[in-house]
Deep mutational scan, measured.
Amino acid sequence: TEYKLVVVGAGGVGKSALTIQLIQNHFVDEYDPTIEDSYRKQVVIDGETCLLDILDTAGQEEYSAMRDQYMRTGEGFLCVFAINNTKSFEDIHQYREQIKRVKDSDDVPMVLVGNKCDLAARTVESRQAQDLARSYGIPYIETSAKTRQGVEDAFYTLVREIRQH
């Protein structure tokens, strides 16, 4: 089974770092803004072998026109913010609204991801993020692309959301 996953969120929150940590098991430290990259990885989730087709997208506003296209083809979405960047957390709402509009559905598989949880300088409390996820009816997972904490959990949870859909 193949799953088309799309990673969305503001610029600099760590979308590529999360994806590369999942696929290649290493942490990319330097920031190089993405336009669009796709990665494929075969994994076993709950005993089922599946192929993850992951689209890593641009957070930069100037590429926002490309969003409709990949939102149409994606089956599930990782909505990523950084726990030390309140603005990126506030941006999640717009991504969710755009996904709902493009998919013409209120019920699209999504996982809210709070990345950079290895950093002490948190400005978005776990509780705020949990409340937001609960209001959307989606899971919330904290990750660190640096330490790998929660990385597999985030992507695998999204696959489970798609399966249950």
Rank of each mutant, 00 (worst) to 15 (best):
L5H: 01
I45Y: 10
R101L: 08
Y39L: 01
H26T: 00
T157W: 13
I83Q: 08
V8P: 01
A10T: 08
D106F: 06
V108F: 04
A145I: 11
V108W: 01
Y156K: 15
Y95P: 00
V13S: 12
L5G: 00
G14Y: 00
M66R: 13
S105Y: 05
T49F: 04
G9T: 01
T147P: 15
E36A: 03
S16R: 00
Q60E: 15
F27L: 09
C50K: 04
T157D: 09
A129N: 13
S88R: 04
I20L: 01
I138F: 13
D29T: 00
S144R: 15
K100P: 01
T143E: 13
G11T: 15
G74V: 10
I20K: 00
R127P: 11
G9K: 03
T147L: 08
A145P: 15
R67T: 14
R148Y: 14
A58Y: 13
D131H: 12
T19R: 02
K4G: 02
E48I: 01
T86L: 10
E97Y: 05
T19Y: 03
Q98G: 03
I83C: 11
I99P: 02
Q24N: 01
T143W: 09
E161M: 14
T123Y: 04
S16Y: 00
K100R: 05
I45M: 09
Q98H: 08
T143F: 07
D106Q: 05
T157H: 11
V80K: 04
E142G: 12
D32I: 10
L52K: 02
Q164G: 11
T123A: 09
K116W: 15
G76D: 05
D32F: 10
V44N: 04
L119K: 12
A120H: 08
E152T: 10
E152F: 13
S105L: 06
I35G: 01
A58C: 14
V7F: 06
N85I: 06
H26R: 00
Y140P: 08
Q128G: 11
A154P: 13
S126I: 08
R67E: 15
G47H: 04
T49Q: 09
R101K: 01
I23W: 03
H26M: 07
P139I: 08
S64Q: 11
V124W: 13
S38C: 09
K15E: 00
C50A: 03
I45T: 05
S38R: 00
G47E: 06
G59L: 08
I45F: 06
R40S: 02
D153C: 00
V151F: 14
G74D: 02
R67S: 14
L119V: 12
L55K: 00
I83G: 10
S88M: 04
Q164D: 06
M66N: 14
